[in-house]
Design a protein around this nucleic acid. Structure first.
Length: 779
DNA sequence: CTCGGCAGAATTTTT
DNA sequence: TTCTGCCGAG
C-alpha cells in the first residue's frame, strides 16, 4: 500500500467548492493521485469514485472494505472536493474510528484535523453538547453508562412500588433501550406497544426515567441520538446548519445501524445527498442490540437512485474456507446475496470438524493443536479461539496456562466498567459536578464510613423536598441536628473534603488531583487493607486511571472521554493466542481460527432459538459465518458431546451449522467411539491416549445428520414451549392459569399467575415459586 | 450499620 | 459458578 504520497497542500481552509457546482467537482476529481486509485480492483475503484449521491457498498468479508473507505476519504480530501469539517464518518466502535483516522493519515502522510470521524455516539454527543438546551439539558450533561442506568431504574421501580423481582431493572432497561434504538421518545411509543410491554409498566417507568434524567442533567447512550433527533425536529435551523456543513457522509458497518441512527443520517444527508454506506448484511450480528438489518436491505428504497457496488473479491481466505462459509450462509433466506470469489489457486486445507467427549477434551484438543502449530513456527498472534459465549473462555484459559501458551482475552470487562474505576470516576464527577446525584450515591459510603441506607434516605428526602442536589442537601442537613452527631460529623468532613478538592481544580494537574482524591478519601487505603487477591490489581488500575487522566486537557474532557471512548485496547505486542467471542472478532482476521462449542443450544444459542425464531437462527448463522471468514488459512470447528454449564452436565448434539457446511470442504474427525467407527488416525497426532478417528467425510457427516434428526424432534418440543412463553406478545397462546406443568427442579405444579415469561406456580412438593417459563416443560 | 451466611436464579453480544 | 437480595447477629 502507498505509505505516503506527494500531495497537494492540505489544510482546513483548502479551496472547497462551497457552492458545489459539478464542473468544479469534475475538475477536482482529476487531482486525485493515481497512486491512490491504481492498486484498487475495479469494484473497489467504483466504490471510491462514486462520490456523489447515495451509494451502498456491499462489502463481503475480506474484500477490502476498510481500504475502500479510507481511500475514499483520502480522495475527497486530496481532490479538494471536501474540507475536513465537511466530512462526517460514523462507525460503531472506537477502534474502527481510530483505525480509519490512522489509515487515512497514512495515505495522506499527515493527520487530518477537524473532520467528524467517530462513533455514532461520540458524534451525536458532540452535536448535543453544542445544542443541549434545545433538548432540555445543560451542555455539561453527564453521560450515564449501563451501571448508572440500572441503579436509576431500580430506584424508579421501587418508587412505583413495583416488585423488583417481577420487573427487574435490567429487563426494563432493555425495553427502554429498544425504544430508544427505534427513535421512540415515550410519547411516540404506540399505545398498543406501551400497554403490552411489562403490562404497561415499562412505559410508565420510561416516562419517569426520562424525567429523572433531565432533572439530573444526564443522558444515557440512547439519548445521545434521541436528543439529536428531537433537536433536529424542533430546531430546523440547527439541522440546516449541519445539513449544509456535511457535504459527504460515510458509514461503516451499516448493517449494524439502528432505526435512530438511520433517521439521524437521513436528516443530515438531505441537502447534499452524498451518503456512502458500507456494510455486509451477512455480517449483521447485533440485532439484539437494536440493529436493523432492514436498514441495509432497504437502502435502495430509502435512498432513491442509490448506486450499489458489490465487493466480492476476497483477499483473505483460502477457497475451502470461502466455499464452506458461503455454503453455510446460503442457508439464510433474508439476505441480499453475494458471491465471494478468490483468485487464489491454492485450495488450502479443508475445514476440520472435530467431535470430542466434553468441554475439557475440547480445550485439550484445541490447545494441543495450537502447541503443535506453534512448534512448527506458527505465530501465536495469528491464532484465535472464537467462542460463542464468554464463559467458554475459561476452559481454554486453564488449558493454555497449563501448557504455558501465552494468550490474551480480548473483550471482557472493560477498563472503565471495573468497579474501582467507576468509583474513582464517581469521585471525580462529584468534584467536577456537585449536582451529580448518581455519583454521590455511589461513593457516599465507599469506603464504608457509616453513611448507610438510612442516612442516604434522609438526605434523599430532604433533597426531594427542597428540590436540590444530594450534596447540597447534605450540606444543609449537617448544619441542623436532624442527623445523629456521629453521622453528622462524618458527613460534614466528607463535604469539606469535596469542597477542598473542588478548590484544587486548576491549581494542580487533574492527574494529581485524582491521586489526591483517591488517597484522601480513604479509597486507596481501603484497597490496601483488602487482602483479597484482586485488590492489588485494582490499585494498579487506579494508577492507570490517574496516568490516563494526565493526557487530557481538562477534567471535563477526560470525563467525556471515559464515558464515550475509553476502551481497553491492550497495545501489547507479545506473541499471544487471542481468545474472544465471535462478536468481538468481527473485523479481525487470523491465519488459524478455532471455533469451539458448535453444539445445539450453545451455538446456535438456546436463547436465540427460544426467543427469536427463524430470524434469530439466521443471526446465529451469520455469527458462524463471521467466525469462519475470520480465518485465512485454517479453521477448526469443534463440538463436545457433553458440556458442563454452571456445574450441570448436559449432553449436547452437534450444531446444525456443522451439517450445513458443504461436505467437499470439510474433513471430519471424532474421538473414538463417539460417532461410529474408529480406526486410529489422530487429530494433531494425539489426544492423550484417546484416539481421534479421521472418518470418511461422508460417514462423519451422515453420523451428524442422524444426530440432527434426533435433535430436531427435541427442537420441535422446545419450539413449542418457546411459543408458549411469548404467547401474549406473539401469535401463540400463553400459559393458562391453573394449567399443570412440570419444572425440572420443583416437579409438578399449577400456574397461579403469569406475565410475559414469569410464572408463579404452586408446586405440589416445593410450594409457591416464581420461575421463568423457559424452565417449564410440557408434562 | 456491617458482615456473614443462605437461598434462588441465570448466564450472548456493547456504544 | 457467580451474582443478587434477604435475614439475623453483633
Amino acid at each position: 500500500m502507498a505509505e505516503s504520497l506527494p500531495l497537494p497542500r492540505l489544510s482546513e481552509s483548502a479551496p472547497g467548492n462551497m457552492d458545489g457546482t459539478d464542473s468544479v467537482r469534475a475538475l477536482a476529481r482529476t487531482a486525485v493521485p493515481p497512486a491512490l486509485i491504481e492498486p484498487l480492483n475495479p469494484s473497489q475503484r467504483e466504490a471510491v469514485e462514486a462520490t456523489e449521491g447515495p451509494v451502498l457498498v456491499l462489502a463481503g468479508a475480506g474484500t477490502g472494505k476498510t481500504r475502500v473507505l479510507t481511500t475514499r476519504l483520502a480522495c475527497l480530501l486530496l481532490s479538494g472536493m471536501a474540507r475536513p469539517n465537511e466530512i462526517l464518518a460514523a462507525t460503531f466502535t472506537n477502534k474502527a474510528a481510530r483505525e480509519m483516522r490512522e489509515r487515512v493519515a497514512r495515505l495522506l502522510g499527515r493527520p487530518v484535523e477537524g473532520w467528524w470521524v467517530g462513533t455514532f455516539h461520540a458524534l451525536a454527543a458532540r452535536i448535543l453538547r453544542a445544542h443541549a438546551e434545545a433538548a432540555g439539558l445543560r451542555s455539561d450533561f453527564t453521560i450515564l453508562d449501563a451501571d448508572d442506568q440500572i441503579r436509576l431504574l431500580k430506584q424508579l421501580i421501587e418508587a412505583r412500588r413495583l416488585d423488583e423481582k417481577r420487573w427487574p431493572a435490567r429487563a426494563m432497561a432493555a425495553v427502554i433501550q429498544r425504544w430508544k434504538d427505534r427513535g421512540l421518545t415515550p410519547d411516540r411509543v404506540s399505545a398498543a406497544e406501551g400497554a403490552n410491554a411489562a403490562d404497561g409498566r415499562a412505559l410508565e417507568i420510561y416516562v419517569d426515567y426520562q424525567e429523572r434524567l433531565k432533572a439530573l442533567n444526564a443522558a444515557d447512550f440512547g439519548d445521545l441520538l434521541l436528543h439529536n433527533l428531537e433537536i433536529f425536529r424542533t430546531a430546523p435551523a440547527v439541522l440546516e446548519r449541519y445539513q449544509r456543513q456535511f457535504r459527504y457522509l460515510l458509514v461503516d458497518e451499516y448493517q449494524d445501524s439502528n432505526v435512530a441512527q438511520y433517521l439521524w443520517l437521513r436528516l443530515l444527508v438531505q441537502r447534499h445527498n452524498n451518503l456512502c454506506c458500507v456494510g455486509d448484511d451477512d455480517q449483521s450480528i447485533y440485532s439484539w442490540r437494536g440493529a436493523e438489518v432492514g436498514n441495509i436491505l432497504r437502502f435502495e428504497i430509502d435512498f432513491p437512485g442509490a448506486k450499489v457496488v458489490r465487493l466480492e473479491r476476497n483477499y483473505r481466505s483460502t477457497p475451502h474456507i470461502l466455499a464452506a462459509a458461503s455454503g453455510l450462509i446460503a442457508h439464510n433466506r433474508d439476505r441480499l446475496g453475494k458471491t465471494l470469489w478468490t483468485e487464489s489457486k491454492e485450495e488450502g486445507e479443508k475445514i476440520r470438524v472435530i467431535g470430542v467427549w466434553d468441554g475439557e477434551a475440547e480445550a485439550r484438543a484445541v490447545c494441543e493443536e495450537i502447541e503443535s502449530l506453534h512448534g512448527r513456527g506458527h505465530a501465536l498472534n495469528d491464532i484465535a479461539i472464537l467462542v460463542r459465549a464468554s464463559f467458554q473462555t475459561r476452559e481454554f484459559e486453564e488449558r493454555l496456562v497449563s501448557l504455558a501458551i501465552p494468550y490474551r482475552v480480548v473483550g471482557g470487562v472493560r477498563f472503565y466498567e471495573r468497579a474501582e474505576i467507576r468509583d474513582g470516576i464517581a469521585y471525580l464527577r462529584l468534584v467536577a459536578q456537585p449536582a451529580d446525584d448518581l455519583a454521590f450515591e455511589r461513593i457516599v459510603n465507599v469506603p464504608r464510613r457509616g453513611l448507610g441506607p438510612a442516612t442516604l434516605q434522609t438526605i434523599h428526602l430532604s433533597a426531594r423536598n427542597e428540590g436540590r442536589a444530594l450534596l447540597d442537601s447534605a450540606r444543609r442537613l449537617v448544619a441542623t441536628d436532624e442527623l445523629k452527631p456521629k453521622v453528622r460529623s462524618t458527613l460534614a468532613a466528607l463535604i469539606r473534603d469535596f469542597d477542598r478538592w473542588r478548590g484544587l481544580i486548576g491549581a494542580i494537574s487533574h492527574g494529581e488531583l485524582a491521586g489526591q482524591v483517591l488517597e484522601e478519601s480513604g479509597y486507596v487505603a481501603m484497597l490496601r487493607a483488602d487482602r483479597s487477591p484482586e485488590a492489588p490489581g485494582r490499585l494498579e488500575n487506579l494508577k492507570e486511571l490517574v496516568a490516563a487522566m494526565e493526557e487530557f486537557g481538562s477534567l471535563a474532557a477526560f470525563l467525556e472521554h471515559i464515558a464515550l471512548v475509553m476502551d481497553n485496547d491492550t497495545s501489547d505486542t507479545e506473541d499471544k493466542v487471542s481468545l474472544m467471542t465471535l462478536h468481538g472478532a468481527k473485523g479481525l482476521e487470523f491465519v488459524t481460527v478455532f471455533l469451539p462449542g458448535w453444539e445445539e443450544g450453545l451455538f446456535p444459542h438456546q436463547r436465540a432459538l427460544d426467543e427469536g425464531g427463524e430470524a434469530a437462527l439466521e443471526e446465529e448463522r451469520r455469527l458462524a459465518y463471521v467466525g469462519l471468514t475470520r480465518a485465512r488459512k485454517r479453521a477448526y470447528v469443534t463440538f463436545a458431546a457433553n458440556r458442563r454449564i454452571y456445574n450441570q452436565w448436559q449432553s449436547a448434539l452437534a450444531s446444525r451449522f456443522i451439517g450445513e457446511l458443504p461436505e467437499d470442504h470439510v474433513a471430519f474427525a471424532a474421538e473414538t467411539g463417539l460417532y461410529g467407527r474408529a480406526d486410529g488416525g489422530a487429530f494433531a497426532g494425539r489426544a492423550r491416549g484417546r484416539g481421534l478417528a479421521e472418518e470418511g467425510v461422508a460417514d462423519g457427516m451422515s453420523a451428524l445428520r442422524a444426530h440432527r434428526g434426533a435433535r430436531m424432534q427435541d427442537a420441535g418440543l422446545r419450539a413449542r414451549s418457546a411459543q408458549r412463553r411469548f404467547g401474549a406478545a406473539d401469535s401463540a397462546r400463553s400459559f393458562a392459569i391453573g394449567e399443570r406443568v412440570f419444572h425440572p427442579k420443583f416437579g409438578y405444579g399449577r400456574i397461579r399467575s403469569a406475565d410475559d415469561d414469569r410464572l408463579e406456580i404452586e408446586f405440589e412438593k416445593a410450594g409457591l415459586k416464581r420461575v421463568l417459563a423457559g424452565f417449564i416443560e410440557t408434562p
